[in-house]
Simulated assay, not measured.
Amino acid sequence: MHYYVTDNRAACVPLNEIPTAGYAEFYEDLAERLADERYHIGHYFTLPDGDVLRAYCLLLDDTEHRVLVASYAIGYYDTPLLPSLTARHPQVHPFEREITERYGVRFADMPWNKPLRFPFDRYDRSSSIDNYPFYTIKGASLHEVNVGPIHAGIIEPGAFRFICNGEQV
């Protein structure tokens, strides 16, 4: 696969100069590179581009101190089921979750594809914090402790759920 390569971290990259591959080629190349510890994802996001949805991936090469940029495009109104990189490389998880949440792109074998941010322009407007798929576990010896939304130990409001197994609560 071809990448736009820069060794200048402050460089502006013209979008029309970023090579575009098919998703299969993108997937295979990225899966292979991410198996090498010298590479990690700096960012992976999608943007509407006319009648297609274009995904961009910034791959960081820690050995050569370079940024490699590639893209793929899918039909904006298609509802494809793309192979997920998350199962092979967990670092991709938040990026694929955001792509699903914002644009409805589905990734096969995506473990627990829950919403990430609930942005105002999310694809599935019926998805809300009221029906958020929190992790749950059931059993006679289990007890769930909710902490939040305000807690003295954190800077911003947050809600946490702790599950105690066999503890006296």
Results as ranks from 00 to 15, higher is better:
residue 88 R to T: 11
residue 10 A to S: 13
residue 55 A to K: 02
residue 142 L to G: 10
residue 84 S to A: 03
residue 82 L to I: 01
residue 123 Y to L: 03
residue 121 D to Y: 04
residue 23 Y to P: 03
residue 136 T to Q: 14
residue 90 P to V: 14
residue 165 N to M: 04
residue 23 Y to H: 02
residue 164 C to T: 09
residue 115 P to C: 03
residue 158 G to P: 09
residue 107 F to D: 04
residue 68 L to T: 01
residue 121 D to H: 03
residue 60 L to P: 00
residue 41 I to K: 06
residue 28 E to D: 06
residue 24 A to P: 04
residue 159 A to I: 10
residue 64 E to Q: 03
residue 153 G to M: 07
residue 71 S to V: 04
residue 37 E to C: 08
residue 145 V to S: 13
residue 112 W to Y: 15
residue 154 I to H: 06
residue 14 P to D: 01
residue 153 G to H: 03
residue 155 I to V: 12
residue 41 I to A: 07
residue 49 D to I: 14
residue 65 H to I: 04
residue 135 Y to H: 12
residue 92 V to N: 05
residue 104 G to F: 01
residue 68 L to W: 02
residue 59 L to E: 00
residue 145 V to Y: 12
residue 158 G to M: 10
residue 131 N to W: 00
residue 136 T to E: 14
residue 145 V to L: 13
residue 101 E to H: 00
residue 77 Y to E: 04
residue 19 P to R: 06
residue 120 F to N: 13
residue 29 D to M: 11
residue 20 T to M: 11
residue 33 R to D: 05
residue 6 T to Q: 01
residue 156 E to L: 13
residue 133 P to R: 03
residue 169 V to K: 11
residue 50 G to C: 04
residue 13 V to S: 01
residue 72 Y to S: 01
residue 51 D to N: 10
residue 90 P to R: 10
residue 58 L to I: 14
residue 120 F to G: 12
residue 81 L to T: 07
residue 83 P to Y: 05
residue 59 L to V: 11
residue 128 S to D: 07
residue 167 E to Y: 09
residue 100 T to E: 13
residue 168 Q to E: 10
residue 15 L to F: 02
residue 23 Y to I: 02
residue 116 L to G: 00
residue 46 T to Y: 06
residue 135 Y to N: 13
residue 86 T to K: 05
residue 87 A to F: 03
residue 152 A to T: 14
residue 48 P to F: 01
residue 20 T to Y: 04
residue 27 Y to D: 09
residue 136 T to A: 09
residue 30 L to P: 04
residue 106 R to K: 15
residue 88 R to V: 01
residue 82 L to K: 06
residue 89 H to M: 02
residue 136 T to M: 06
residue 55 A to F: 12
residue 141 S to N: 14
residue 71 S to I: 08
residue 13 V to R: 07
residue 155 I to P: 05
residue 139 G to W: 06
residue 117 R to L: 07
residue 162 F to D: 15
residue 9 R to A: 15
residue 116 L to T: 00
residue 139 G to F: 14
residue 68 L to Q: 00
residue 61 D to N: 05
residue 71 S to H: 04
residue 128 S to A: 13
residue 141 S to F: 10
residue 59 L to R: 02
residue 80 P to D: 11
residue 32 E to T: 10
residue 92 V to M: 03
residue 100 T to A: 11
residue 150 I to A: 15
residue 58 L to C: 13
residue 157 P to L: 14
residue 48 P to I: 00
residue 12 C to D: 09
residue 115 P to V: 04
residue 78 D to Y: 08
residue 13 V to K: 05
residue 164 C to L: 15
residue 72 Y to F: 10
residue 62 D to F: 08
residue 62 D to T: 15
residue 88 R to D: 09
residue 137 I to V: 12
residue 72 Y to W: 08
residue 128 S to F: 02
residue 97 R to H: 07
residue 129 I to E: 09
residue 160 F to H: 08
residue 82 L to Y: 05
residue 59 L to K: 05
residue 136 T to C: 02
residue 102 R to C: 07
residue 168 Q to V: 06
residue 23 Y to K: 07
residue 132 Y to M: 13
residue 10 A to V: 12
residue 92 V to A: 09
residue 117 R to C: 07
residue 19 P to G: 09
residue 1 M to I: 12
residue 56 Y to N: 09
residue 91 Q to C: 14
